[in-house]
């Protein structure tokens, strides 16, 4: 509960932050909302020598429209995503997901960039980010690149970010026509993180036939994943109860579910199937 000693920097802009990161490399940690990093430091599971606080980098906190996309700065707090009128109108899934993260205090501090970069297997955002097919912009002193959401999550607590890179922006598509979305979550009762979280983006034609669908699932596996088998079983089909149920039964196809004190692998898989179905039904209702 008492961290080891570290040196603290509070750069005023992105280039200063990048320079510091370049200088201290592996011995430095970026600090965003601190709601994942600081608990780890208190338990001495993380012992960075240098902490680079992005709190002063104001240019990374924004929600903007850009044509058919929305851009969210990495330092945007969960509460700002949750309450953004623009997101509620044009990307309700993201706002809904932010609303389900932790409690008010956590949402007041935690950031979307921090959550994605941390890649906790039970974090909420990854499910939505995958279902939305988001793209993530990373910057280093050498330049910038875009990473597709699906390529971003590599393994438990591991992302495609390279040493020296800062995640600066998340780009998500605006809600298309005749599209419904849903995020449902079963919370692990102690931590409040997702034991199972399912995000669905679902486009249906006027006859109720599924035109396109994306399902992101978190909490079940070492990293959040796209439930491709579910999507395939829905696409092009009229969404009646049995089609949805049969598709949802494939929610963990090819996945090796996690097992811990809070849920066995078997129960996690079961939850994924049940809540996948409920999420699809909810998304269909919201079209």
């Amino acid at each position: 509960m008492i961290p080891t000693a570290f040196e603290y920097f509070r750069p005023a802009n992105l280039s200063e932050a990048l320079a510091l990161l370049e200088q201290y490399k592996d011995e430095a940690k970026l600090l965003a909302g601190g709601h994942s990093l600081i608990p780890l430091m208190k338990l001495r599971l993380a012992q960075p020598q240098y902490v680079i606080d992005l709190g002063g980098v104001k240019e990374l906190s924004y929600i903007r429209e850009s044509g058919e996309h929305l851009l969210i700065g990495a330092m945007t707090r969960h509460v700002d995503v949750e309450t953004s009128e623009m997101l509620r109108q044009r990307c309700p899934l993201l706002a809904e997901t932010a609303h389900r993260i932790g409690d008010v205090q956590v949402r007041n501090m935690g950031t979307i960039g921090g959550s994605l970069a941390h890649a906790d297997p039970a974090a909420d955002y990854p499910a939505a980010i995958l279902a939305l097919g988001a793209e993530l912009r990373a910057v280093s002193t050498k330049g910038e690149r875009w990473i597709r959401a699906e390529d971003f999550f590599v393994d438990m607590l591991t992302t495609a970010l390279q040493p020296g890179e800062i995640l600066v922006e998340v780009k998500v598509p605006a809600l298309g026509p005749r599209t419904g979305t849903a995020y449902v979550k079963v919370a692990q009762k102690a931590s409040g993180f997702a034991l199972c979280g399912v995000a669905v983006v679902l486009a249906v034609d006027p006859n109720g036939v599924c035109q396109d669908v994306a399902v992101g699932i978190t909490g079940i596996a070492p990293k959040a994943y796209r439930a491709r088998a579910v999507e395939e079983a829905l696409r092009g089909r009229a969404l009646d109860a049995s089609v949805i149920a049969n598709a949802s039964a494939k929610a963990t196809e090819g996945i090796d579910p996690l097992e811990d004190l809070h849920a066995s692998a078997e129960y996690r898989a079961h939850l994924a199937r049940v809540w996948c179905r409920r999420a699809i039904e909810q998304a269909r209702e919201s079209v």
């Binding site: 338990l43 409690d103 692990q188 009762k189 102690a190 931590s191 409040g192 004190l261 809070h262």
Partner: peptide
């Protein structure tokens, strides 16, 4: 419904943090 102090066979307290030991919210 929620709480249980769980020790593993070797006597380590598995529910040794608030992230693992569920008190009611």
């Amino acid at each position: 419904l929620l709480e249980e102090a769980v020790y593993d066979e070797s006597g380590q307290l598995v529910t040794g943090e608030l992230t693992e030991y569920a008190i009611p919210k």
